[in-house]
Structures are given as structure tokens and as C-alpha cells.
Amino acid sequence: MSATIIFLPAHADQPWRWLRLENNAVAARGEGAPEQTGGETIAVAPADAVTLHWSSLPARSQAQAVAAARIVVSDASAAPIDGLHVAVGEASEDERPIGVVAIERMREWLASLSGLGIDPGAIVPAPLLIAPPVEGYVRAELGGQPVIRGATSGFADEARLTELVTGGRPPETLGRDEVELNIISSATSPQLNLRQGPFARRKRRAVDWPLIRRLAVLAGLVLLLTLMIDLVRITRYAIAADAAEAQAEALAREGLPRGADQGDAGRLLSERLSRLRGPGAGFSATVAVLANATREVEGTEVIAIAFEPSGELRATVAANGEAQANQLLDRLRGAGFAVTASTFQSDGQRVRGDVTAALP
């Protein structure tokens, strides 16, 4: 085991004291600015700054134990519970130690240690560095501060208080070697650590590089899988488009005359359609427009028609009067054709004239 034990001074004018533990022995000791040469650091709180209690507390969870301890402390403390920090230690037989210290005092200790560049893993009340005696009380010197330890008690050694608690029976005084053995034993697993709740030591999370590499590999696999899905989809679309194009070409070739299937089927089919339809809008479309116009204008009729190679439609029409003839011409113009007409001549009770319609 490698650790540094730092004794927090009871007062600001008192010196710092420390012990360096290595291989279950005190390797060095000193006063002044604490030395830290590696290993864990344990701070020891002055006995007169921490009040210790022992009580049977629930062991289901630390939070439940602390809540129960605060109830116990509030009944036994004259100070407001809101200004006290309550910490619960490990169970010893049927009872667990409870440490009570002013919140402001905890802040001062941590601030002074931080100023020395020290972040202790634990702050242990001084009396708990001494193992409890089987019976009676023992006295020990810890960092220049005398403390008394009983089976379920621990406090600073003060003449009147000690006599009152011990019933006038003088406690057994431990030698320096015995004290150091107790410190070594307690430093391995402190029975009570005041660094709990809001004063708990923050854990520094190391970067898990193997996990990051695994996550990077998984992310790369997800991206690769997404890319493969897109490629498969694009391939399927391309195959479907080629199949549709081949089918369209096959259908187009079915509409071509025999022996005229050499070349682009779509272009050949368009040329044939143009020849069948004729120039301009084509014979069928132009005649259809004239027929619709005649049907819409009452009293008009087509006498004769002729479709010229230039795409012009020449028609002789008859109407009940010039008004109906003009309506017919307006219908043709409204359909997008350029219309010219001869003078309508009277033919009995009707008028007759020639009309030419073509796309402009």
C-alpha cells in the first residue's frame, strides 16, 4: 500500500503534519507543506471538528441510511441541521458510525487542500483511525491532537469532557508504534469517509479508446450498408428503365410497316405518323375542328372539303345568314387556326362561301 496521511490542523496557526505509508509501514513523516509523491491521499479531520454517533441504520441504500442518520442527528444536535454535513460509515456489527461536521468547515478543508494541489480520496475523522477497544477507552496522539476512542465513541481529549464520558476511569494511552499500526490498518479501508453527498470526490472518466474504435467501426459499417442499399436501389431502377425502354421499342416496331424496322424505332414511328397525319395539324385533327364548329353553330353545314398537301383545309360551307357564318369562322379561329374566307353569296334563303383553315 502507498498512501499519504495528512492531518488537517485544528486551527489556522497550527502546522500541517503528514505521514507517508509504503509497504504497510511509515516510510516518512514531516511538518509543514504536505508532500505528495504518489498513491492515495487521506486527510484526517480534527477530532474537535467532527461529532461522532453510532446508530442502527437501514442498509438498503446509502441514501436511505443518510436520511435516517439526519433524523438521529437532528434529535441530538443543537445546531440547525441545514448547516450540517452528515456522513454514514460502514456497519460495525449492528451499528454504523455517523459523522457530523459543519458544511462550512468541510468547504474550508477542501479549499485549503486544493490550494496545495491535493484532492484527497477520503477525509476521515481522527478518532476513527484508532481501532475500538474491547472495553474501556484508549487515548492516542494523532497529528499533535490527543483523541479518545471507545467502543462506540470518539472525541477530542479534553480533561472535563473525558472524565465525564469515561466516568473518571483513565483511558489507556497508546504508544507511537501502536498508533502507527492503527493508522496503517485504518488507511487501508476507512470506516467512515466524510467525502459523501455534495462533497463526494468527482470521478475522472478516462477515455475508452477501444470503445471509441468499436463505435467508429460500427458507424463505418452503417454508412457502408447505407451506400450498398442505395447502389442496389439505383441498379434496380436502371434495370427497370432498360426493360421499359426495350418494351417501348418493341411496341414501336410493331407499328412500323414490314421491312421498315432498321434504325431508331421511335424516330421511324414518328415519321410514319407524320406522313399519315399529313402536314400542319393533320387531316383528321383539322376536319374534327371544322366538324365541331359546325355542330356548335346552329344553321351551318359543310358542303364540300378538300385537304391540300400544304396542310390547308378548304371547305365550302352554307349558313342561314352571315351572322351564323361569322360565328363559324370565330370558332375556327378560337381553335388556333388561321382562317380566310371568301365573300358569302346568297343562295336562295341561305348563304354560301369558301373557307380556308390552317395552322399559322
Rank of each mutant, 00 (worst) to 15 (best):
A159N: 03
L161K: 03
A200E: 02
T166P: 01
A187I: 11
A151I: 04
A200H: 02
L161E: 14
I184W: 00
R202M: 08
P190G: 07
K203Y: 13
L174N: 08
A159G: 03
F155M: 13
L192S: 09
L192G: 10
E163Y: 01
D157I: 08
S189R: 13
R149V: 09
T166V: 07
A151H: 05
S153N: 03
A159M: 05
R176C: 06
E180N: 13
R195W: 10
L164E: 05
T188R: 15
I184N: 05
T162Y: 11
A200M: 10
G150P: 03
R169Y: 00
A187V: 14
G154L: 04
L161H: 13
E163D: 15
E172S: 06
D157A: 15
S153V: 01
I184C: 09
P190T: 06
L164W: 15
R176K: 13
T162L: 06
I184A: 05
D177T: 12
G168H: 14
L181E: 12
P198N: 06
R195I: 05
N182P: 03
F199W: 07
K203N: 05
L181V: 04
N193L: 06
D157H: 10
P198F: 00
G197N: 09
R202I: 12
L164S: 14
R204T: 12
F155S: 14
E172Q: 13
I184G: 08
E163P: 00
A156V: 14
R195Q: 10
A187Y: 15
R195E: 00
E178C: 02
R176H: 02
L164C: 06
A159C: 03
D157V: 08
G154M: 03
K203R: 08
E180I: 02
D157P: 01
G167R: 11
S189K: 09
L192D: 13
G167I: 05
S185A: 15
P198Y: 01
G175M: 03
G168W: 15
